[in-house]
Design a protein around this nucleic acid. Structure first.
Lengths: 119, 119
DNA sequence: TTGACATATTCCAATATCAGAATATATTGT
DNA sequence: ACAATATATTCTGATATTGGAATATGTCAA
């Protein structure tokens, strides 16, 4: 069978480096039009527009109309979901001693902080 | 021009739901062979093997040989990178008042906690 | 060595994805 | 209405990705 119709979720949205650049830029400037984004990140206008489309579909950015401009800004809740998901692995990177402790924990069965299934 | 040769980084690795499932499973059980993973997550053995290959190339899992088994376990440092990157947007999801405060901050120029460019 | 088991690799078909060029759709100002 | 500006959409070509089937590789045990 072919590939499943890649539903457009946050993880997919941030998998593209240019899109992460866009998000970082929006984090810095707060709000920006498509043209400014394209110029700042040195990309073609259609490329910027399309990436913003993906980000919007994923619910990571918001659009606001201002005259003939479309001002994009962050909508970070979904990014928070990613943050939370990665956080479930926290005990695996803390420190050497923590890693040993974690191994002991999981040897005694899934603890209260065991990573959960995919969102 | 075509697409750039998608270098296999963490963001790309975790963009696939099944791979996130694998990571979560490894987080729960600590270490597991390919067959067990395939059975538990109800996927074909080659599929599991291939996904694990991607995760390994991305440096998110480790392999250890044990007889005829290959035991995979987490190597969470790269996941931590994702955690840190999403963390740079923290001030955008904290609360309504924080969001207003953030807007005021960025109006006065990029603050000390401004999100950085892509890793 | 032979056989059974565990995992990896190769090949294939169906999509998905990206950049770039050209074009279409607003929206504002004259 | 017309021109200029800002953004979105459509089309195309190259490549990447995924699952599935078949096969290869590696390892233990008798």
């Amino acid at each position: 069978m072919p590939r499943p119709p890649a539903t457009r979720d946050v993880f997919l949205a941030i998998a593209e480096p240019r899109r992460r650049d866009i998000l970082s830029l929006l984090g810095r400037v707060g709000e920006s039009g498509v043209g400014a984004i394209a110029v700042t990140l040195d990309m073609a206008q259609p490329a910027a527009s399309k990436h913003l489309g993906v980000l919007r579909e994923a619910g990571v950015v918001r659009v606001r109309r201002d005259g003939r401009q479309r001002l994009y800004s962050l909508q970070a809740d979904r990014l928070r979901a990613v943050h939370e998901w990665t956080r479930t692995f926290e005990r695996y990177w803390s420190s050497q001693t923590d890693r040993i402790k974690a191994r002991a924990e999981q040897a005694a069965g899934p603890g209260p902080h065991a990573p959960e299934t995919t969102p």
